[in-house]
Design a binder for these strands. Structure first.
Lengths: 204, 204
DNA sequence: CGATTGTGGATTGTTGACAATTTGATGAAT
DNA sequence: ATTCATCAAATTGTCAACAATCCACAATCG
């Protein structure tokens, strides 16, 4: 019997949330731009219900801010000192998870990592920024889920969504892929020290 | 002109979420106990819509876990090593916020702190565990919001909900009040060092 | 007897309609 | 011109009904 670890069926809410999250993190919206339920419902071809659920979820995650009776708006990313503190928390979580992952990752994990990296490469080549963001999050997330736990992953996510990575610092998108490739290669070869260095470099 | 910093009007979703959160954190439910939408809707006298929203929010926060088409169940708190790591993150956030709060808190803040402490005292006296939990969260939360920022507050919350404080370690509920009273007194007298010590003691 | 496949009841997912609230414009009174 | 009340449009909040899905248990087949 075969059980699919990654369920292919996903609710409308989840799909809408994922797509919007990637677009928001890719800076496709202006800060404070309102997200209207009706417009999104039409765009995704569903009723307002699932859209509402997705918007509420993204508000909890930190990508949007919610005001009673006034809907949701795009949440501005953390700035300056705030960002530094949040980033230090994120780094601490990821470095802790990295140790656990390198210690006991199996062939399945190695394959998964390569798969994500491949998708990132394709996204970078196509210059599809939302897809790049998605694969970036997926990679880090995989490390944390496997190296730490689901609970830690949730905390990490609440941080990662609130500090938008500055993709514009890399003039060429393929740089993003290369950075992560170095990280993955270090992990696959079991070199924790080098993996830590690559991760730190990636987190600016 | 007067603007109310704390809006008195709160949506049904928010009220339901707050009440359920306190009850969950007060261990009024068994781990993994399912939360049925219909039953809760009847209990709160509303339709399933707002209940659904509240359950989704609490799932995002970490108090509940959500499974597609199978509803939500109460999430077991982090255990052992996982808990230690999460607690170290929480302590780091709170200690950082404490510094900022002691530095620039005004009379308004001092009054708010005393108010929360009074409510905690009443709750402890009445042995109303959900209310104790609520005031406990409110106190820490106020420190963080004012000492750091709303974004940090959100991250802190995602941690705090996932590690349930063990209230049973204090045989007498008034102990909980005393612990926090010491913390507040240290803050009000501007003694950062003593405040840090009190906070560390509180966080076990 | 063990495994597989229907089937019914319970539960969640989605929808469209309606109620409540906010917002911005309009116009009257001072 | 300024202020204030009033109204209409837009938007969110809530509801009840319906559709889709899951689970436990019985029926069937090897």
């Amino acid at each position: 019997m075969m059980k699919n670890a990654a369920p292919t069926i996903r609710s409308a809410r989840e799909q809408i949330a994922d797509q919007l999250r990637n677009e928001i993190l890719a800076d496709l919206f202006c800060d404070d731009e309102p997200m209207r339920e009706a417009a999104l419902a039409e765009r995704f071809g569903v009723s307002r219900g699932p859209v509402r659920d997705a918007l509420l979820q993204l508000s909890q995650e930190g990508a949007l801010t919610y005001k009673p009776n006034r809907g949701v708006r795009v949440n501005a990313p953390a700035a300056n000192g705030e960002r530094d503190f949040m980033m230090s928390l994120r780094a601490r979580i990821e470095l802790e998870a990295l140790r656990g992952f390198v210690r006991d990752c199996d062939d399945r994990d190695r394959e998964a990592l390569r798969g994500i990296l491949d998708r990132m490469k394709a996204a970078c080549r196509a210059k599809d920024v939302p897809a790049i963001v998605g694969s970036d999050l997926a990679l880090h997330r995989y490390l944390i889920r496997r190296g730490a736990s689901e609970k830690v992953e949730a905390v990490w996510k609440s941080i990662a969504v609130r500090i938008r990575m500055d993709y514009s610092r890399l003039t060429k998108y393929m740089e993003i892929h290369r950075e992560h490739e170095q990280l993955v290669e270090a992990i696959l070869s079991g070199d924790l020290k080098q993996a830590r260095a690559a991760l730190k470099a990636n987190l600016i």
